[in-house]
């Protein structure tokens, strides 16, 4: 999708707001401070999507939250296994290296990260565009990145060829991939609405 500089700026502002809200909520949930650093935004051809997080056969922990309402899309937060465990330590306030295997508690902590991220994005969209959107309950999946992302790519391929991918890191140390993927119609609508408001 070709965006004008002003449209990029509007989109970046929205993402920055969403990540700031995510940082705030995550910090409240934990004992320490959790920051999401300098997001990088890019549009990626859908056929490249399955390889975005370490290759299509890389094992990942993914949290999926759907967007429903006036915009339709998908938010996915992806962690590679080591990152997922580091994130759990961060969330539970344990010293780094404590979590060696994802247990029920770790899984629900990560699902909550997905929930918070998804909700923050949805709030930022609603706040800046005035569109009515809502998140679906989070789903946690541990499997090959390709298998998870392909399923989403397939849905998006019905309406477009690209996905908006946001890459960030938690506290500058734990890399995570956020994928905010409105379908093509929704993306166009979001951009138009953001522009009109600016």
């Amino acid at each position: 999708m070709k965006l004008q500089p002003s449209q990029w700026a509007a989109l970046q502002d929205m993402v920055t707001q969403a990540l700031a809200e995510t940082s705030r909520s995550l910090s409240q949930m934990t004992t320490g401070e959790i920051r999401l650093d300098s997001p990088q935004l890019s549009f990626l051809p859908l056929r490249e999507l399955p390889g975005v997080a370490g290759g299509p056969d890389a094992v990942v922990t993914a949290v999926y939250v759907g967007i429903e309402g006036e915009l339709q899309g998908h938010v996915i937060v992806l962690f590679q296994p080591r990152e997922a465990r580091a994130m759990v330590d961060l969330l539970l306030g344990d010293p780094a290296g404590t979590c060696r295997e994802l247990d029920e508690l770790g899984r629900s902590a990560l699902a909550e990260v997905g929930n918070i991220c998804g909700s923050a994005f949805i709030n930022a969209i609603a706040d800046r565009s005035g569109l009515e959107v809502r998140p679906t309950p989070p789903l946690l999946v541990e499997d090959m990145a390709g298998a998870i992302l392909e399923t989403v790519a397939t849905d998006l391929l019905l309406s477009g060829d690209e996905a908006l991918v946001i890459t960030t890191a938690f506290n500058g140390a734990v890399p995570g991939h956020f994928l905010l993927m409105p379908n093509t119609e929704s993306m166009a609508r979001l951009i138009t609405t953001l522009e009109a408001i600016r």
């Binding site: 759907g66 429903e68 789903l139 999946v141 392909e150 399923t151 989403v152 849905d155």
Partner: peptide, 9 residues
């Protein structure tokens, strides 16, 4: 496979 139940589908 059916990996996820996607929103809106």
């Amino acid at each position: 496979a059916r990996m996820l139940r996607l929103a809106g589908s």
